[in-house]
Amino acid sequence: MKTFKWIILMVCLGNIDLAKAQIKASDIQVPDAPGFVLADKAPSAVDRPTTPKTFGLSLYTLQQGGAIQTTPFWYWQREKLDFKAFMSKKNPLWETLNFSIATFKTDTSTTLSAGIRTHIFRIYNKKNKAAVSAIESNAATAIMMLDIEKEAEARAIMTKHDDSISNILSKPAFRMEFAAAFLGASPDNTFKNLASNKAGAWLNASYNPPNSDFNATLLSRYIWNIGESSATGKDSAFIDNGVSIAYQKKNLNLAFEYVNRIDVAVKDNYSRLAFVINYKISDEITLVSSFGKNYSEVSNIFTVFGAKFGIAGKQQNLN
């Protein structure tokens, strides 16, 4: 309740300006599907093929305009890969290599956006491993006790176990991720004349200390756009280096982010500073507030306050 009062106070002091709601709390993270972020529009539906056969079918539909996201490692049976074996792998490059590809077609043009993402290095601590082992053991007993004829009920029970496991798997003690993507467009609607006009690469290291609600993330990012720097007439290119420190507790998420941007085209650099607060009032409503300083040199102080309304029942996550 104390926290809630503090948020209200902050809102009263702040300049409420939803029009400037341009701050992304996840700006310091590697995008989940790098192949989709370079395009300015999101694909309406994403195919997730899980076998070589369904991947082939997805590629066919991709030609007509569509999107796929897939991790080929899992196309084949992995009978030795239980949770213990998976969490012991320190270089799961192949296990986590994920492709995201999207095509956007109009009557006159085609845009292809493609990306990869993988974990270069990661470590789970003993506490993580023990927690997953305990949940796995409970789930193994629970699944045998289920009345499997009551399918929806059984699925709900097992999904709870899965959520607990997935939550731990998503937060190794230390993880280094790499992602890259490019976007190409064809002016005459043929893949033959596809020319690259946007590219990006991300390198991210995150640390989740044991027995702590804090986590820290370092990010380096390179973004290149053909012909977008009007000041120099050159292609625009940015190198961002940033750090994020976040605190997560039940209904409250706090994040501090700092990003230093090097504008390669104009040989200048500037920075962005943001402090973001998410407070979950209920499963459906989350208050969001952020304030700080943006990249631009003038009018760069921002304060944003808003509310997120969801139907998924999941709190917005700052990480």
């Binding site: 899980t50 899992w74 009978e79 699944i143 045998m144 699925r155």
Partner: peptide, 17 residues
């Protein structure tokens, strides 16, 4: 009797050794 719950969104495969 071995029961599986498909929780891995990357695959529909199940296996037991």
């Amino acid at each position: 009797e071995t029961r599986f719950f498909d929780r891995n969104e990357n695959t529909n495969n199940v296996s037991a050794m």
